[in-house]
Design a protein around this nucleic acid. Structure first.
Lengths: 207, 207, 207, 207
DNA sequence: AATGAATGAGCATTCATTCAT
DNA sequence: GATGAATGAATGCTCATTCAT
């Protein structure tokens, strides 16, 4: 009944905070992300942020969650686009993950490199949601196993190990720990190819 | 006869600083590592640290260097112990690396996860020394290629990708990002096995 | 009726900071002026100062600016009060300057003695404002020249040299570098008289 | 009787400390002068300086004293070189002073701009020695008075006021407080000329 | 005569957070 | 819903000085 148009003001500020935080994160890195800077950037007082987030950690959790959702969407789209050939799908998923990581280095940092003990516990249910991203890999593997293309003991475990490979690849690139003489594209391609080769059935289809 | 002043007091403090820094690093992470905390932990004044290290960065560099040397020694020993079979040697090297990472999480973060922009450039010559650790993997691969066991385009690149896999594995474990339902040992074994399978020659031993 | 929050609390603290800074400045000198000391002196936390000033330099700039304004007001009043006789006006301006310096040693140091390399550049527009103070002297000289009382090559240059004389006089007095056997009043009078004599036309009134 | 050649080792280090301190002073300014830096520069431990100077203040006092002596020597030489014409001598003394100040800005700072209250009291006897420099100006004035060229009430006072003028001139130049549009040489010349004109007898020598 | 080890005090600045309004 | 004022704790680092040897 008040003069505020639709009541979406509230949700609006929350969004602006998150968007700005993400921007600052991408621009200046995790270390430089502070409540005051976010507040300054949106033209509100620092105090205002606390009306929408209990703490900086809570804000970060929300951010991580968004990142996970974004990644999930990308992986889902990728899975949908490659609904047939398991190898192709798996390769596409791998490329998608690496691409996401390299395009969003700071997002990547808070999503996968922040140690949970060092933050107010990241709520369990969000971890579960995050883990869902692994299912795309697991499903692709299972489908490949069904068709005799892949050989895998436990798809959940193997999905985790592919993920580990990709994570290592992205991490080293982001941390600038790859020999400069190696072309990044080559590095990524080789890494993905190697990961895929690790799954192919021993004696493909020799009757 | 009292001219020997009691032994290595001097080296002693330097060591205690390094050890304490390492401990704090694993306990609370890089972000929380401060000169004052180190000083407090050893019961000295913060100023004293500067008698042994020019700056916080210098201290970290020393720590990184130590870690690199330790890792190199371990890898060298491993390589020597497995002088024959390339597959075995590579597997052993992989296990050695993972073991090192899990046993020395304090080193691991600064050695492999710290973004260089956040630290005064780690001196070039030390980077070179660090990269030498990769050579153990490259050599093992090359030897395998010579014997027709491995199939690899560029051993330098492939060494980097194995390393990426291992690094991803260790990172996820240290960051507590692996599904709790997966046994760590299984995870590691699978990761290493997968990495190795990625190198085996296409038609292994068809006579 | 209670909506007026008690008056100028806000402006109040800013003022207290400036005043306290000025006091500390004269008490212990520029070198000893620190944000903490100011804060301690007013019973606030050091952080609070940053709510009113962006940096220590900004605070000093504000102080310098205040001093310049105060001096300008005094000189302006003096010029107005002595609108006629150029010699009298110039003398009055000189006395005014010296008086200001001796009465406001706190301002004086930062206004005229601080080496600019030691401070973030004092904004150009303020320097321009500061220089305006010299115009009072230049104008008085010019008027005297018009009337044939003064003989001067370039009034801007000569204004600067009078100023130099006065500045030297104030500086030596403030730094306690004048022979104790010399009476300060005599010293000042002599200095001003000498400066004025330096301008009088060569053949004053020979008919 | 020991193996140390002549015993001048001691005096030698004292000298090196002073010379180095002066060098650092000139190079980096008073603010940057620290015991450790001096020590580092001569390759001795900081502690060693304390064997030769009770404190940093004592070292500074010695430095100031040296500066005073150097200035005295220069003024004396100048006085000797211009033994005849009082006006010329006074002008030469003025030029000598200004030159000294501009050539040794940092020396100048500690000699004339350091507030004595902010240092352990600069010993009285040194002040007296320092003041002797003024006598050169006083003598030149007196000689001019004797010959009817100058008109002066108290040569001691007037010497102080010339000095004030010169000091103001040097100070403003060093502090970069002179209008950039004014040529420094012109500024100095005008200042000195004005100071001299302030002393000339009213009706020069009309019988 | 010289030093290495050590320190307490100090610096400007930033941070996440609280609280009364 | 939003804020201005305020803060305690922390940061890396430098300084003059002391003391036992």
């Amino acid at each position: 009944m008040t003069s505020i148009p639709e009541g979406s003001e509230d949700a609006g500020l929350r969004r602006r905070i998150l968007d700005t935080a993400r921007h600052l994160l991408v621009q200046d890195g995790y270390q430089a992300l502070s409540m005051r800077r976010i507040a300054d950037a949106i033209g509100y007082s620092a105090t205002s942020i606390y009306l929408h987030f209990d703490s900086k950690d809570a804000l970060l959790h929300a951010l991580i969650h968004e990142g996970m959702m974004e990644l999930r969407d990308r992986l889902r789209d990728t899975a949908v686009e490659h609904s047939e050939a398991p190898v192709e799908r798996l390769r596409a998923l791998c490329e998608c993950f690496v691409e996401f990581g390299l395009e969003n280095p700071e997002y990547y940092e808070i999503m996968f490199q922040l140690r949970p003990e060092r933050m107010e516990r990241y709520p369990a249910e969000k971890y579960r949601a995050a883990r869902k991203n692994l299912d795309f890999f697991a499903q692709a593997l299972e489908r490949g196993v069904e068709r005799g293309i892949f050989e895998v003991d436990d798809s959940r475990v193997s999905a985790s190990t592919v993920w580990a490979s990709l994570h290592g690849t992205v991490s080293l690139l982001l941390a600038d720990r790859v020999d400069v003489r190696i072309d990044p594209e080559t590095f990524i391609d080789t890494a993905i190819r190697q990961a895929l080769r690790g799954f192919r059935a021993s004696a493909p289809s020799v009757p």
